[in-house]
């Protein structure tokens, strides 16, 4: 396989997997949000912030995919292609898993906010803790890309 194709697969996987992670995460949080909003419509604004949090992995995955695309040239050799593929993997895998995990945390935080509206700040912090690892993966991917 040509290096170009390998790199394109890498970029594609990065956007796709991280996007899937975010989609599942936002879905999980969204279900919880719908439940709480049905009882307490006033909280919708606060809850929407929590629901949006697992959405960032998808953006990060997209970002890395774009950065890789900028580096792809026609007629790359296989090792260059695999390098780009490898640089995409931290964000792709961590994006998938952390998106799902963050969604679950967000759902729990949404339930907590439903019972104690004043605790939404704490819920946001809890949810943001999970995102740290997506951010580290993003950084790793970016730093790896700068070395290619």
């Amino acid at each position: 396989m040509s290096g170009t194709a390998i790199a394109i697969i890498g970029a594609g996987l990065c956007a796709a997997l991280a996007g899937c992670g975010s989609a599942v995460g936002v879905m999980t949080a969204g279900k919880a949000n719908a439940g709480v909003t049905s009882e307490k419509p006033d909280l919708f604004g606060k809850l929407l912030v929590l629901q949006a949090l697992p959405g960032t992995q998808g953006i990060y995955g997209f970002l890395i995919a774009i950065l890789i695309l900028a580096k792809i040239t026609v007629g790359m050799d296989a090792s260059q292609g695999w390098s780009l593929f490898g640089a995409a993997m931290p964000m792709a895998i961590a994006g998938l898993v952390s998106g799902i995990a963050q969604g679950k945390t967000a759902a729990a935080a949404i339930h907590m906010t439903g019972k104690q509206p004043d605790a939404s700040g704490k819920g946001i912090t809890m949810t943001a803790m999970v995102e740290t690892y997506a951010i580290l993966a993003l950084l790793t991917s970016i730093l790896l890309l700068t070395k290619i």
């Binding site: 960032t56 953006i59 990060y60 997209f62 970002l63 774009i66 950065l67 740290t132 951010i135 580290l136 993003l138 950084l139 970016i142």
Partner: peptide, 20 residues
């Protein structure tokens, strides 16, 4: 300290998405 790298990540995310 490493956690502050999110400043870079978020700044880049905003920049690159804007560029896209």
């Amino acid at each position: 300290i490493l956690s502050y790298s999110r400043i870079l990540a978020l700044g880049l995310a905003t920049g690159v998405v804007g560029m896209v």
